[in-house]
C-alpha cells in the first residue's frame, strides 16, 4: 500500500531522527554508556525493592498453616447447641474450616499434654469451656481479620475470642512500610533519571548551539529542532530500562539458590520470581517516559533561548 506523501515524509523524518540520534549515542560511546549505566542502576534499585516486597508477600502467603481463631463458648451449652454454633461459625465469610472441641476432649488433651492427671482428677468438675477453633482464610488482611473477629464475638453463645494475629498485623505493617519505602525510593530515583537525562540533553543542546541556530535560520520548525533531543532522551530511557531489566534478572538468578535453601529450612517450596514480562515492559516504559520527560524539560528550558543571529 502506498501511503500519502505527507504521512510518508512524517515517518521518514521520525525514522531519520531516531536513527541519527542512536548513531550519535554510538559516536560518543563512553559517555553514552556511563549515562545509560546511571539510569539503569537508578531504575533497577526501586524495581528491585518492589520485586523483593512482592516476593516476600508471595513467600509469606505460601506458608503452611493459616491463622486460627479460638472461640470459647459458654460452659452451659449442651453438645448439640455447641455443634450448632460451630456450624454457624463455619458459615462465616473468610473461615475455611472449624474444629469443635468439647470440654471432655479438651480435658483429655490437657491431661495428656501436661502430665497432671492426678491434680486434675482432684477437680470436682471440668473447668474447661467448649471451644470452636476456626481456620481463617490465608492472606486475609488485617481489616478483614478484625471484621471476622467482631463477627465471631457477636455470636451470643461465644464468651471470648482469641486470635493468633499479632504476628499477622506485624507482617502487614512491615509490608506496608516496605511498600511505602519502595515507592519513596522509586520517586527519588525516578527524579534522578529525569535530572540525569535533562542535564545530558542540556549539554547536548549547548554543544549543538550553532547547528540549532542554522536550522532555525533556514526554516526549521520548533518541532524539527526539538525532535532529535527528545529521541535522544527516549533512547537513554529505553537503554537504561533494558539495563535495569538485565540487572534484575541477573540478581534473581544469583539469589535463587540461597533463597530456596532458606525457604526449604522453613519447609516451603518457595522460588523467587523475576520481573516477568509485564514487569520488564513496565520497566522499559518507565525508562522511556522518564527519559522523554527529562529531555522535554531540558528542551523546554533551553531551546527557546536559542534564536538565530
Amino acid at each position: 500500500m502506498k501511503l500519502p506523501a505527507s504521512i510518508q515524509a512524517w515517518f521518514e523524518q521520525h525514522a531519520r531522527a531516531a536513527l541519527n540520534t542512536l548513531g550519535g549515542l554510538r559516536l560518543r560511546l563512553a559517555s553514552s554508556l556511563m549515562t545509560t549505566a546511571v539510569i539503569g542502576i537508578a531504575l533497577a534499585l526501586p524495581a528491585g525493592f518492589l520485586l523483593l516486597v512482592d516476593n516476600l508477600e508471595a513467600a509469606t502467603a505460601n506458608r503452611e498453616g493459616s491463622p486460627q481463631a479460638s472461640a470459647f463458648l459458654q460452659a452451659t451449652l449442651n453438645v448439640d447447641q455447641q455443634r450448632d454454633i460451630a456450624a454457624q461459625i463455619k458459615a462465616l465469610e473468610g473461615i475455611t474450616d472449624v474444629e469443635h472441641i468439647t470440654p471432655e476432649a479438651a480435658l483429655a488433651e490437657f491431661q495428656r499434654a501436661s502430665g497432671m492427671q492426678e491434680t486434675l482428677a482432684l477437680l470436682e468438675r471440668n473447668p474447661l469451656p467448649p471451644v470452636v477453633v476456626a481456620q481463617l482464610r490465608s492472606g486475609l488482611s488485617g481489616a478483614d481479620a478484625d471484621a471476622l473477629i467482631s463477627a465471631l464475638s457477636a455470636i451470643g453463645a461465644v464468651d471470648e475470642v482469641r486470635v493468633d494475629r499479632v504476628w499477622l498485623e506485624r507482617l502487614d505493617a512491615l509490608m506496608q512500610l516496605a511498600n511505602r519505602g519502595s515507592g519513596l525510593i522509586a520517586l527519588l530515583l525516578g527524579l534522578t533519571v529525569v535530572l540525569v537525562v535533562g542535564n545530558t540533553i542540556r549539554l547536548d543542546i549547548e554543544n549543538r548551539r550553532s547547528e540549532i541556530e542554522i536550522t532555525k535560520l533556514i526554516g526549521g520548525t520548533d518541532a524539527f529542532v526539538r525532535r532529535p533531543f527528545l529521541y535522544t532522551g527516549m533512547w537513554y530511557g529505553l537503554l537504561g530500562g533494558s539495563l535495569a531489566a538485565i540487572l534484575l534478572m541477573l540478581s534473581v538468578l544469583l539469589l535463587t539458590g540461597p533463597s530456596s535453601h532458606l525457604a526449604s529450612l522453613y519447609g516451603s517450596a518457595f522460588q523467587p520470581m523475576g520481573p516477568g514480562l509485564s514487569g520488564t515492559l513496565t520497566l522499559l516504559g518507565s525508562g522511556v517516559a522518564l527519559g522523554l520527560l527529562g529531555a522535554g524539560v531540558a528542551v523546554g528550558r533551553h531551546l527557546a533561548a536559542i534564536e538565530p543571529r
Binding site: Q8, A9, E12, E211, G219
Partner: peptide, 24 residues
C-alpha cells in the same frame, strides 16, 4: 557562510530539504 562543520557538503546542502520533509 554559516555552514555546519561537522557535516559533509552534501548534508549541509540537504538540510533545508530534510527540514521541509522531502523524501530521500
Amino acid at each position: 557562510h554559516r555552514l555546519l562543520h561537522d557535516r559533509s557538503v552534501f548534508d549541509n546542502v540537504a538540510l533545508p530539504l530534510v527540514i521541509a520533509g522531502r523524501s530521500h
